[in-house]
Write a protein that binds this DNA or RNA. Structure first.
Lengths: 202, 202
DNA sequence: GTCTATATTTGGATAGAC
DNA sequence: GTCTATCCAAATATAGAC
């Protein structure tokens, strides 16, 4: 029956070109800004004219969507690669370091995934599901540590978002805020530990 | 000598129209987004055609610049109106509540002043000086409380920025994060107090 | 000061030849 | 699949009449 799926060289090359287009799109968005991305620029950088891109993506938004999905997958893969210790404080640091690094390593990706700043762009439902999966992963990990109430989760995400936002907007590429991650997590951990003790005792 | 400066009705009306244009610009930016502001829309809303705006502002960037300056002045005026108590923790809460409210009350103003998101827009030097004055005001107030080292300042601004960013991007108009301000300040205050004690004792 | 008319640029998208 | 040619729309800005 020759069950081996026969490699389709044509569609393989097609996928390769799509990947190349996305690569270029990331690079241009990094220099010109996410909103400054134009099909002309992308096409020129891959050695095409703008209309040819439509053989690979149905629209400019489709390119944004593919970038969004790629960013989500990168987050999930990186998170899978983490190894946790079982110690709550340590694991909290590991998780927070990962999130802040993930964001500051690629500000454009951060902007695309976590700020909704492209006018008129909404990820497709399938892509959005990937995004939800990422948030869910984080939430589940925090639940293992014992953080489940909304207020505590929100305070933690605020701390992470704040370090990230300050680093990106005030000193992109630097470490002035990222180096505070461990200290910030200790501060947070002491706070919720204290609160638990207080509500247990009386 | 008739030293009284004679009122110039013409330039008074001119200033009035400029103010009206700015008012409309804020409103449109609020609905269409800061980058979605167009001269056509602004002109129509004040009952003019687009070219007529050039009698009041030299360019679109000049309008952004005037909005930026106005936002800075609002921050300074609001800060002047605060009354502090002399108690460090209380005053820290007052300052933080003010900053977070100032930002979340008007997300567009926040975006214009604290995120650099308009492609190609830079405030003029005079306007930028107003912005620096605002940051300086905050820094001086924190110095009175005894917070002067860079790391502590940065951690505090990260907490404020994080609560603000989360509130604006995840629940604009709500209070899910702003209501955590006092708790966050307590957490921060306990942290730096603890650290001071630790570095004093040994 | 305000208008109409227009220049200019830019960028997404489509038609149709090859 | 890629190209040229073109369309269409939006938006800033200027010229010059009134």
């Amino acid at each position: 029956m020759l069950g081996e799926p026969i490699r389709d060289r044509r569609s393989e090359r097609h996928e390769g070109t799509k990947a190349e287009i996305l690569e270029v799109a990331w690079r241009i968005a990094g220099t010109e800004g996410l909103a400054g991305l134009t099909l002309r620029d992308v096409a020129r950088a891959v050695g095409m004219r703008a209309p040819s891109l439509y053989s690979y993506f149905a629209s400019k938004h489709a390119i944004y969507d593919a970038m969004f999905a790629q960013g989500c997958r990168e987050f999930l893969q990186g998170h899978d690669a983490l190894t946790f210790t079982g110690d709550p404080l340590t694991d909290l640091k590991i998780g927070m370091r990962y999130f802040v690094s993930f964001c500051t390593d690629n500000p454009v990706r951060y902007q695309l995934l976590y700020q909704r700043t492209i006018p008129g762009f909404e990820p497709t439902p399938e892509t959005f599901a990937l995004s939800v999966a990422g948030l869910d992963r984080m939430r589940r990990q925090l639940a293992e540590i014992g953080i489940t109430d909304e207020g505590s989760l929100d305070l933690l995400t605020a701390v992470g978002a704040g370090l990230t936002a300050q680093q990106i907007s005030n000193e992109p590429g630097g470490t002035r805020w990222t180096r505070l991650v461990d200290e910030a997590v200790e501060m947070y951990f002491a706070h919720i530990s204290e609160r638990r003790k207080a509500s247990d005792e009386p």
